[in-house]
């Protein structure tokens, strides 16, 4: 699979059709892979694609990460199904044009939940929970796919994947609040959860604004709650469920649980699943003159 992708990537870099191919290469220890920007055809020899490829590479197509400054006319990107879902969502939100990117996809067998759990293979104990409810193992929209792409029915509703969410929902309000208060005590506001997210695309995040300051910048209880609740709301109907925010958090705060819960709510209220259509806009960023709610018209 990766051989065919390497070959195609090399060909398109050689012909000049692509300026760059963003993919994964071997990391600095055997449990990890690392993002790589292939500019020269021979760079494609370094590409790998396996269960250690955790990063959501479309974060690099996000203007927060200097994407427009790179001056790439056409960007190749290797994506797992969930990454391609993120690209689809970026396009739906007018953050990217479809013809700016060339998408390499392949059938996905899942990824490890965290590099530290990699023991040479992918299995039930170390596979990310998002993969258990995944309907994009065969990716949605690709420009290059090795072999024939089978049709897949993806009409089902959004499914919460993290078992931890069931535990949390069962707690009473007080216990749940205590849980988050204790967990948030570790948050030092490094914003790794924001930076890895393909959909945290604001040039200046509201938490970084100081005139006025909307959210306390310091990582005390108020500042941390302020950050996480704001972030959860800003991703409603936009999060494509890649789980990277949780995976990237150095102190194991499972931030994506908020986003998973809100995905469920958006599914129930608006019958909307983010990342499945470039045309249908996320409900909370659209304006509709015949909205059934009068306060919004």
């Amino acid at each position: 699979m990766i051989e065919q992708i390497r070959e195609k990537a090399r060909e398109l870099l050689e012909s000049g059709e692509l300026d760059v191919v963003i993919g994964y290469a071997e990391g600095s220890d055997p449990t990890r892979t690392t993002p790589i920007f292939c500019r020269k055809p021979e760079d494609t020899d370094k590409l790998v694609l396996d269960g250690r490829c955790v990063n959501t590479l479309p974060a690099y197509l996000n203007k927060r990460h200097e994407y427009p400054k790179k001056g790439w006319k056409k960007t190749g990107i290797i994506g797992k199904g969930c990454d391609i879902r993120a690209i689809t969502q970026l396009i739906a939100e007018n953050q990217l044009k479809r013809d700016e990117v060339y998408i390499f996809g392949a059938e996905c067998e899942g990824v490890v939940a965290h590099p530290e759990k990699w023991d040479g293979s992918l299995h039930e104990g170390n596979c990310a929970s998002k993969c258990s409810a995944c309907d994009v193992k065969i990716p949605l929209d690709t420009d290059f796919y090795p072999g024939e792409k089978p049709e897949v029915d993806r009409s089902g509703p959004y499914m919460v994947s993290a078992p931890a969410l069931a535990t949390l929902v069962k707690m009473d309000d007080e216990d749940r609040f205590a849980f988050w208060r204790d967990d948030f005590d570790r948050c030092f506001k490094c914003y790794a959860c924001r930076e890895v997210c393909p959909h945290c695309s604001c040039n200046i995040c509201i938490t970084d604004r100081t005139m006025p300051s909307w959210v306390d910048q310091a990582a005390h209880t108020k500042g941390v709650f302020g950050w996480h609740l704001t972030r959860a709301m800003h991703l409603v109907g936009r999060c494509t469920g890649c789980g990277e925010c949780t995976r990237a958090c150095p102190v194991n705060i499972q931030v994506d649980l908020f986003n998973q819960k809100m995905k469920e709510v958006i599914q129930e209220s608006f019958d909307y699943k983010s990342g499945y259509s470039m045309e249908v806009k996320p409900p909370l960023i659209t304006y509709n003159t015949d909205d059934q709610e009068t306060y919004i018209r």
Partner: peptide
């Protein structure tokens, strides 16, 4: 060691 939720997505953290 810090308490953690069940499920594969969480990792051990000691502070």
């Amino acid at each position: 060691n810090q308490p953690r939720l069940d499920g594969p997505d969480s990792i051990d953290v000691a502070v």
